[in-house]
Amino acid sequence: MSGAAIPRGGLAKFRLPLALVICAAVVYAATALGTAQGEQLSWSGVMGLLQRMVALGIVAVGQTLVLLVGSIDLSVANLISVSAVIASHVMNGNTDAIALGVLAAIAIGILVGAVNGVLVAKLKVSPLIATLGVGLVLQGVLTTSYETLAGSVPASFRVLAYGRVAGLPLAILLLIVVVALAGFVLARTAAGYRLYGVGGNVQTARLAGIRTDRFIIGAHIAASVTAAISGLYLASWLGAGTPWVGRDGGYDLDSIAVVVIGGTLLSGGRGGVAGTIAGVFVFATIDAVFNMLQIDPFLGQVLRGVIVVGAVASYTIRTKAHVA
């Protein structure tokens, strides 16, 4: 597993993310200049590019935590829809209900995360199946109850997605806060250190006296909460939650793809949010570059697949161990 040539220690561990970001940024800038769309490099052009990262970025941070702990979460896409729908239903255009709506969405996130975590950690259900199953349940409940849950967020809540502080969109600040928080926890706190331990080797962590189940459940709760926050952001960005917003957005597989592109091991124990955010940036620039180049959307889909595989292969290909 250690075969992939990932530099280690100190600043070196940011080398891969940095390389990804620089590559993507260069391609973006070159395309903008090459197609005479220099405006895309202006402040608002770049902010537009960054705003493409927000929804995927927030949930990808949560996905990073779950992958680091050696699990995976396929329920995030449907949970995003649930959160967006619940929030807009509870708020229902009413400014006073904003806090309640946010609380409700987060609470659902915690609940779903706890269910995922218990299934994985306590009942030992394969995390893929457990979260896929929970995702299907959420989808079923949502499509059944959507009409009951209709509503929209009040204008004042839409500040979250559309507001700016000193020229910087609030949404990007939100993403920065989530990333910084997760990054800090992982890199600086005992909880973060232990999370890596659990993901690296559950047995080792257990023998080191770590309550591994709590970390697995905790990571799932964290992931679900980020999905809920993504849902809140999308409700704010879109004005109302729709039951397909998460699934159509492909947030489940996309979030996994960006985390892996960012260098986090699918089997856990290595990686971090810096890489993830670089992966999200790559995805955002793919969209923007394809638009600028007027690439046929079907061809775009083919290229997206090739880029995902190519990006991951570029550093896994030297791995000696077998991967499945």
């Binding site: 996994i256 699918l266 061809l299 083919v302 290229l303 292969a313 030297r318 991967v323």
Partner: peptide, 27 residues
């Protein structure tokens, strides 16, 4: 080949081909 030679985890590799194959069908 992507999985066995490129050592890309199959969940990512076949996610990539999922997109590409669908795209090819549409193109």
């Amino acid at each position: 080949v992507i999985v066995a030679r490129g050592k890309v985890p199959s969940i990512i590799a076949t996610l990539g081909t999922l997109l590409s194959v669908k795209g090819i069908a549409m193109m």
